[in-house]
Design a protein around this nucleic acid. Structure first.
Length: 781
DNA sequence: GTTATCAAGTTTTTT
DNA sequence: ACTTGATAAC
């Protein structure tokens, strides 16, 4: 047995985790402890011992993690070895389950998934329709309040029941109206995917039985980042009969299902969106017989890196300490550098990465290096520097492509076709490009539609509906309706494939929508001079290619929502073929597009340095890692500084960043950073000292700060003048000035007051607007 | 109805 | 700095 290749080169705890196949198992896996290796071996081991692949359900945090796990299991089992196995994110699993069991869930099978933008649009209308002011009830905070409730599986009624003060009662009304608006549009938001799945599993025994019959081995990765809804879903699927909606609290389950969860409380970084570390504790309470295995030995990082991580994380009070240790000797010291400005920081990082390239021979691939930051806005300066320095880089922003205006427009057309009740998508594109269906017309139609209780598109295609409009608008409505019918084959949405005009492939449909809607012509017309519109056209054709690719790879058999085989043959049986094939294909495409995450885009096969947020870096590793912007207010973030709990989460985030590094780690902070156009004095992060590494200070050779006394903050550190407005304007239109970074220039205009700004045309870098107080501008004679 | 210009708010982090 | 929302001109 011990020469089983699946067990070779595993440590004792890893081996035990692999061999524990029956009954609940909790794996506490420290950073870099070979977690993925253990999990993939365990899955392969299950299959080797006779478990059918389709009986295995593995839930991960990102699509990328799921894909990677599948690839690694497949390399252990051989090609096709994972056939029927479901490896997906919670959200995609739930989306598929809800489609399959749409009726039981109380949804139409063509439901749309609304992203943050769509949610905001719906919420704005809701707030408005309730006669509330958007200032007192900002759509964004309404949404986040509601999201918190949903993560706890509390619905609008439950929230209303405990809402005592005026504010909460109002929020409860908003909550109710928001839910109604979503359902009217046949739409769900991200949270609903989880909420409605949990609800359906609880309320519909036949659905639960269906799932439990199929999946006999359940595995949940990144368990420390699951929220309550995800906890309930995984417990129910595993057979947690004790989990009852009417019974608050966790009660031990009588049986011992085959559920394996893996997590590390020190890497919990999603509490802000409802993740609950206590799910790990609750796991042991729910399954008292659970075996707990700790993976502590680190195989990833050198001793100095690990020591810094350990020294830092020990500062967290709410924490069960576990030792991080490595048997690897030596290693270069961790570098902490205090820079002058963000530009200085960026050029320093560029140099550092170039040095790291020479760490090995042949040179270290760029793809083995990463730059990590707390929030996305920090990427820009680094980008500029890497581009100027000729170092290839990619920004891990998976959603970026689908976030682009032109792509979102095209997708809105498609979503409207997939779900004719999707009013949010319809109103997004009904007048894009302008076709005479402006606000006034749409408002009239919307009012009539909601009076009749039908979706807007349905109303528009009803004969006579546009009669109340002026002839011009009436013609525009008719034209739009016939445009849509041309794509769907006449209002029936491909029901019987009888329409000759209907497209035959997904790529064809996408292409036709882009062309016939006028989107293409609109951007082509604007593309004359503007480079960005040229790029928009390319993105649109890229969307067609991605549809074609999706179509080629689409495997209806791979749908995790399929039931278990009835007759013991391999492969899931049955299928959800109720929808016409084209419509099913379109829905699946839109769903895959809706559920991509930033972390999904980190593709190490590209020969480029990866730039990403600390959150997106979870689960990855690199030869060299640079963490930038280690400053108070950034990391920890300004918001987090209010509570100790939040600071501890930021510390864990820093810990996650540090432990991504295998060999080399650089952490930088800048003394001055331009945030939202204002250059501000920054204080190095407390985490720097807490890492136990001595920081070195560097001066910026190109920063022009050789004569420091000239630039020490003046107005910034001095109280404002008592006699306001009397100060002599040192800068007015026409005066020559010098800026430490931008060089010399001429003032174009200046404003007075507390936040006095000057607009300066710099000789080298063009026109900039600066806030006088912070800009360290020097007048030239 | 459409387009241009200006003021205001905005930034954590993600499915 | 940058996008979004409101108002005014076309």
């Amino acid at each position: 047995m011990h020469d089983d290749p699946l067990l070779a080169d595993l440590t004792e705890p890893q081996r035990q985790a692999v061999l524990h196949t029956e009954g609940p198992l909790l794996i506490l896996a420290a950073a870099g402890s070979g977690k993925t290796r253990t999990l993939t071996r365990r899955i392969a081991h299950l299959v080797r011992t006779g478990v059918r692949p389709w009986q295995i359900l593995a839930l991960t945090f990102t699509n990328k993690a799921a894909a990677e796990m599948r690839a690694r299991v497949e390399s252990l089992l051989g090609e096709g070895g994972t056939r029927g196995m479901v490896l997906s994110t919670f959200h995609s699993l739930c989306a598929r389950l809800l489609r399959r069991h749409a009726q039981a869930a109380g949804l139409a099978p063509e439901f749309s998934i609304y992203d943050t933008d769509d949610q905001t649009a719906v919420m704005k209308k809701v707030v408005e329709s309730l006669g509330l002011s958007a200032a007192n009830f900002p759509p964004r905070s309404m949404l986040s309040a509601i999201s918190n409730e949903k993560n706890q599986l509390r619905d609008a009624a439950a929230f209303a029941a405990v809402a005592n003060d005026f504010y909460s009662r109002t929020v409860a009304k908003v909550f109710t109206a928001y839910e109604r608006a979503l359902r009217a549009a046949q739409a769900v938001d991200f949270d609903d995917l989880l909420v409605l799945t949990a609800k359906t599993l609880r309320a519909k025994p036949e659905v639960l039985a269906d799932c439990q019959a199929r999946w006999r081995y359940i595995l949940v990765d990144e368990y420390q980042d699951t929220n309550h809804a995800q906890f309930v879903i995984s417990s129910l699927l595993a057979g947690g009969s004790a989990l009852d909606a009417s019974a608050p609290g966790i009660h031990p389950a009588s049986d011992a299902p085959n559920i394996c969860v893996v997590g590390d409380p020190d890497q919990s970084i999603y509490a802000w969106r409802g993740a609950d570390i206590s799910n790990i504790l609750d796991f042991e309470r729910l399954y008292p017989s659970a075996r707990v295995i700790t993976l502590g030995e680190n195989f990833r990082s050198t001793a100095p890196i690990l020591h810094a991580a350990d020294t830092l994380i020990r500062r967290n009070v709410r924490r069960k300490h576990k030792d991080l240790f490595t048997k690897m000797p030596g290693g270069d010291p961790v570098e902490v550098v205090l820079c002058e400005s963000e530009r200085h920081e960026a050029s320093l990082v560029l140099d550092w990465l170039r040095e790291r390239r020479q760490d090995e021979s042949p040179p270290v691939a760029w793809s083995r290096m990463a730059v990590l930051y707390r929030n996305n806005s920090l990427s820009r300066v680094i980008e500029d520097s890497l581009r100027a320095g000729g170092v290839p880089y990619v920004i891990a922003r998976g959603t970026a492509f689908y976030d682009r205006e032109e792509v979102r427009h095209a997708l809105a057309y498609l979503r409207m076709l997939a779900n004719p009740a999707d009013d949010a998508s319809l109103s997004r594109i009904v007048n894009v490009p302008p076709r005479g269906l402006g606000d006034a017309t749409i408002t009239t139609l919307e009012t009539a539609a909601s009076a009749r209780g039908v979706p807007l598109l349905r109303h528009m295609s009803t004969p006579g509906a546009a009669d109340a409009l002026n002839p011009r608008a009436r013609a525009a409505v008719a034209k739009f309706v016939s445009l849509v019918e041309g794509w769907t084959g006449g209002g029936t949405f491909w029901a019987d494939g009888h329409a000759e005009s209907a497209p035959g492939s997904l790529a064809e449909l996408v292409g036709r929508v882009i062309r016939e809607s006028g989107l293409e012509a609109m951007y082509a017309a604007r593309a004359k001079g503007a480079e960005t519109d040229e790029a928009r056209l390319e993105n649109l054709s890229e969307l067609v290619s991605s549809a074609r690719q999706f179509e080629e790879e689409f495997d209806p058999e791979g749908d995790p929502a399929l039931a278990a085989p009835q007759d013991g043959r391999d492969g899931p049986a049955g299928g959800n073929l109720a929808a016409p094939p084209m419509l099913a294909l379109l829905r699946a495409f839109l769903e895959s597009v809706a559920l991509v995450a930033d972390a999904d885009a980190a593709d190490p096969s590209l020969g480029a340095v990866t730039l990403m947020t600390l959150h997106a870096a979870k689960g990855l590793e690199f030869h060299a890692v640079a963490i930038i912007g280690a400053e108070e207010g950034l990391l920890p973030s300004a918001r987090a500084r209010a509570t100790d709990e939040a600071v501890e989460e930021e510390r864990r985030l820093m810990f996650v960043g540090i432990t991504r590094a295998m060999r080399r780690l650089l952490v930088t902070s800048a003394r001055y950073r331009t945030v939202r156009g204002l250059t501000e004095r920054q204080v190095p992060s407390r985490f720097l000292a807490e890492m136990g590494v001595r920081a070195s200070e560097r001066h910026d050779p190109f920063g022009g700060l050789d004569d420091e006394s000239d630039f020490t903050p003046t107005a910034a550190s001095r109280p404002a003048h008592a006699g306001a407005g009397r100060a002599e304007p040192r800068f007015r239109a026409g005066s020559k000035v010098r800026h430490p970074q931008f060089g010399v220039g001429t003032v174009l205009s200046a404003t007075a007051g507390a936040n006095a700004r000057v607009q300066v045309d710099f000789r080298d870098v063009g026109v900039k607007t600066l806030v006088l107080e912070y800009a360290r501008l020097e007048p030239l004679a």
